[in-house]
């Protein structure tokens, strides 16, 4: 029995030590506050009364401890306190509690990633502007209201809320393709002779190095002066080279630049380009640890 006794003793020490090390580790990686991803996005606002009511205008994601069961239920942007946004962590129709689901405290919130969980806040714009509003508003800091009554100021990066009227142009969209690797291409048919001016977006300066954005294989910064004749095709392509981005580059990009051009009569027109979107799928615990370290949260 001596051998058994020794195995018991060694096993006991090993298991206790492992448990203590794991407890210390899990406390050391515990987040003191939720960490929001940084955004560099443009999104269209609900601009007037006639526009659809209660529309999803953005999705914000944050990383928190897996046992954090608070929910965000309101978002107020410091730069636009007059606009009322409604926030919810569940999509409509997705929050029913069945009979066999245990108590709400045990409900799994968000996507589980090791000790953390990735939550999504769906932000709806409930109110409309009293008068039709056209233009751009930059939102940076949000005040988040949690279900336990606490609030938190969060720097979300740059979110551009815009509203515009769709004016008739001479570039008619023909085909659009976009792929899950965040590459996309849009073809336009030129209906009148045009001279391209530039791409304008407040966010183009914040675009990551691994973004490639071209018109007919010409880089977007060098398009000024390019001319197209009536009947020509114009192809805009965007691509994000995922391999150049670090595996924990969790910033979200959704840039919607305006392509400004001049038509023959000298008038300046623009068309907005969509689908320049990049967001790394977040599921890996190790990458998340690196990301949180980089953000200084742990």
């Amino acid at each position: 029995m001596r051998l058994h006794h020794n195995i018991m003793k060694i096993g006991l020490v090993l298991m206790t030590l492992t448990m203590l090390i794991c407890i210390v580790f899990s406390y050391s990686i515990k987040l003191n506050y939720p960490v929001f991803l940084r955004y560099c996005i443009e999104t269209e606002a609900v601009s007037n009364q006639a526009d659809s009511y209660n529309r999803l205008v953005m999705e914000l994601q944050y990383i928190t401890n897996s046992n954090d069961n608070r929910l965000v239920n309101q978002v107020v942007f410091k730069e636009a306190p007059e606009i009322y946004f409604r926030a919810s962590e569940t999509l409509p129709g997705n929050n029913s509690l069945g009979f066999f689901i245990k108590t709400t405290t045990n409900r799994q919130l968000g996507i589980s990633m090791g000790r953390y969980s990735l939550r999504t806040i769906y932000v709806y714009q409930d109110s409309y502007f009293r008068e039709d509003w056209k233009g751009e508003k930059e939102l940076n800091t949000a005040v988040l209201y949690f279900s336990d009554g606490s609030t938190r100021n969060v720097d979300l990066g740059r979110i551009i809320l815009y509203s515009e009227t769709n004016e008739e142009g001479v570039l008619a969209p023909e085909t659009t393709t976009s792929s899950s690797d965040f590459s996309s291409s849009t073809s336009y048919r030129v209906e009148d002779n045009v001279r391209l001016l530039n791409f304008s977006s407040p966010l183009l300066g914040n675009a990551p190095d691994f973004m490639y954005f071209k018109i007919d294989n010409i880089n977007f910064t060098d398009i000024s002066g390019m001319e197209y004749e009536k009947g020509n095709g114009l192809r805009i392509t965007s691509k994000f080279n995922n391999s150049q981005a670090s595996s924990y580059h969790y910033d979200v990009y959704d840039i919607r630049p305006k392509l400004n051009y001049k038509i023959e009569d000298g008038a300046t027109k623009y068309i907005r380009v969509y689908n320049i979107r990049w967001q790394r799928s977040i599921y890996d615990f190790k990458n998340t640890l690196n990301y949180l370290k980089e953000r200084g949260a742990i």
Binding site: L14, M19, S112, R115, F285
Partner: peptide, 23 residues
């Protein structure tokens, strides 16, 4: 008992790591 204890120790250490990284 001998085999049982060895498997038990292995299983418990594995469980501890699994719960920590929640894999």
């Amino acid at each position: 008992l001998q085999i049982y204890m060895l498997v038990f120790i292995f299983s418990n250490i594995l469980g501890c790591i699994a719960l920590t990284i929640f894999d």
